[in-house]
Structures are given as structure tokens and as C-alpha cells.
Design a protein around this nucleic acid. Structure first.
Lengths: 198, 198
DNA sequence: GTCTATACTTTGATAGAC
DNA sequence: GTCTATCAAAGTATAGAC
């Protein structure tokens, strides 16, 4: 049975999509309501704080969704190393499928607002911190110590984010694939439970 | 003796500065001419192609400048590994000095235009390719084979770019420092001429 | 080449009827 | 809660005097 999607959620979804491809300043509110099939007034009814409030909620929602994707891929893998491999391979596949449009849901916005909106910058920082915490938990559970886990996690997401920039610009998955291989090698060396006998 | 800076160059410089902090769509042309102390008409006299032409030239000029910085740091270092270390340390220092504003001169713009302007996307791709070529040259000269050199270079810039995102968002140099350590370790393992006896 | 004035469009935001 | 009409400001771009 079909259930209508609430206006507020449609606006959130549409904005998230637009943010990925056009960024924060590149996305107009009129564009948002058109994509969300919502009347203009509804936007300010649901988000009285205007574009900045909407931006903050979209950043947090997008960050949460990407975190869930990460957890899901890791859960579906036999061990953390295989999980990392699958995560990067999935990222590369998505890039190709979407003509290099869908990479990190908040990276573009994060760079745009880093020096222009303290409120939004904090939202992006919280998202990245939540990813780091989740990765650190994973690797700690696999036997690594806290410091090692955190370091490995940051290297992994750092490599992924940077690779997204190069891959989208050059329209090639080379960077993402290399970053994935690098993350896998680091995880294996750190002893994050590869399936190989050691 | 003081020599006046041509209007065209002042516009290019000012736009480059603004692009770093506000991005492409976030930078208005009125803002540009104000910062460059240039009359509005001069902008269209020197850049008849409007904002997109200006953007393209700024991307290429900024990319060239950052490449020169890389070459300079590498030249000033005893070996490639030490050069990488110095490059990342310099990046971290600049971040702190500028309150996390000045990182990669074209990253924000690269993500913004990747799916919105083919002409500008190509400009960013050319810049990244030029960096990769320069790094590959360095490591090849240090004794690594072509494939290894390219891989190491991409991993290095990929790590730097991703670390810039996390560092600017969280206002911490942790990610850049970790990415630097990772690049140094990779270069050393690959055999890019560390000063240590092996 | 420099500079001013202006045209036209889009932006974020608000008011008020329903 | 939904929707339309409208505002002031900022956006890019152009014309034309000097």
C-alpha cells in the first residue's frame, strides 16, 4: 500500500540530491521546491530558519544515511578488511553509474561552508566525527587498540574523500580504486582481521 | 622600485583568493572587482567570456602556483621522502595560520563544477593531471618505476585533498598530519630514497 | 583600457488568502 | 498546512562615455 511522503521529507530529500551535485550556494530554494513538488510557502513553514536551517538538517540527515550505508556494508562482510574493500568498490561503481555525480553527500557543502557559515561547518564536523567514531568502533572490535583504530579510520575516510575529488574531476575511478587498495593494505598491516593466515 | 600590478592580474589574484574560501558560485563578480580594486567594466574587457572564462583561468593559474610550491618544497629537501614530509607539514602550518581557510586552491571549485560546467571540470582535471605528472616525475627520478611512482603520487595528493576536507571541517590538523605520515610511510616502503640505511 | 550606469534575472525571504 | 503574489537585494551581463 502506498503511503504519501510528507512534504517536509520530500524537501529534505530533494535538497540532499541537489547539494551533492550543485553544492550549497549552487542550490536555489526555488529549485528545491520545484524538485520536491512543494509550494514555496511550505519550505518556510517547515524550516523557519530559512536556507541555513534547511542546510543544517540536510547535512545531518545525509551524513546519517551515509553512515548507515557504511555500517551495512561492513555488517555484510566477513571481516573489516573485506568490508573496506567492498565499500570502496561500491563507491567506484556508484560513481560510474551516476556519471561521476554521486560521491560523498556532504563533501562539496563541507568545503563551501568551512569558512562562510559556522553553524553549517559544525554540522559537517559532527558528521565526520560520527563516521570516525563508527569506524574506530569497528576496528577496535576487530582487535586493534583505540589509537590505531582511529588512525586507520581517518586514513580511510581521508583517502575516500580525496579520491572522490580527483575521480569526479578526471572522470576516472583510478583514484578511488587506489585509495581503496591503500586502505585495505593499511588495515591488513594493522591486523584488522584479514582472512589470510598470519 | 615599485611596479603597478596590471588590472588583469589583480582580478586573477583576487578571484583566486575568493574561490578558496567561498567557492565558485559563492563568489560574486561584484565582490571580485571590489577586492581587486578594479572597475566593473574592466572585468568584461579582460574576460569577455564572463565568469566561466575567468573561472577557468583562475583554476589553471592557481593550479600552476600550487604545482610550483610543490616543486619548490621538493627541491629544497634532501630526498623525496623528506620533501613529502615538509609539504604536509607546510600545509598543516598554513591551515593553522589562516584559521583553516587556505587549503587546496581548487578543491572547493573542483567539486562544485564537476557536474555543472564541463569546461571548468576539464580545467580542474588538467590541474590534477599536471600535479600527478610532476609527482610521478619526481619519484621516477628517485628510482621507482613508472607505475609505482604514479600510484604513490595519486595516493599522496588524494590523502592531502581528503585531509583538507576533514581538517577544515573539524578545525584540526589531525587528518593532514596523519595523511602526511601515511604518505611518508608509503614512499619509504616503495623505496623513494629515504635517508635511512636499508 | 578605464570607468559609470543600467538592464535583466535569480536569489532568499515575507505576507496574506485559502 | 497549502499555495500565490510580491519584495528587496544580489547575481551576471551589456552599453557607451571618457
Amino acid at each position: 500500500m502506498w503511503v504519501p511522503v510528507p512534504t517536509r521529507d520530500r524537501i529534505l530529500d530533494a535538497t540532499g540530491q541537489l547539494f551533492r551535485r550543485h553544492g550549497y550556494t549552487g542550490t536555489g530554494l526555488k529549485q528545491v521546491v520545484a524538485a520536491a513538488h512543494a509550494p514555496f510557502g511550505s519550505l518556510y513553514h517547515h524550516f523557519p530558519g530559512g536556507k541555513e536551517q534547511l542546510g543544517g538538517e540536510v547535512i545531518r540527515a545525509s551524513g546519517r544515511m551515509y553512515l548507515e550505508l557504511f555500517e551495512m556494508v561492513m555488517d555484510a562482510s566477513p571481516d573489516p578488511v573485506a568490508g573496506i574493500e567492498a565499500f570502496f568498490e561500491g563507491a567506484a561503481a556508484t560513481l560510474e553509474e551516476t556519471d561521476y555525480a554521486d560521491a560523498c553527500p556532504i563533501a562539496t557543502v563541507a568545503l563551501e561552508v568551512a569558512s562562510t557559515s559556522e553553524a553549517l561547518r559544525e554540522a559537517t564536523a559532527e558528521v565526520f566525527d560520527s563516521w570516525i567514531a563508527a569506524g574506530t568502533r569497528r576496528f577496535t572490535a576487530a582487535g586493534l587498540n583505540e589509537a590505531c583504530s582511529r588512525q586507520l579510520t581517518i586514513e580511510m575516510f581521508t583517502g575516500l574523500e580525496g579520491a572522490f575529488i580527483l575521480s569526479r574531476a578526471t572522470r576516472s575511478t583510478e583514484a578511488v580504486l587506489l585509495a581503496g587498495a591503500r586502505a585495505v593494505a593499511s588495515a591488513r598491516e594493522a591486523g584488522a582481521g584479514g582472512s589470510d593466515v598470519r
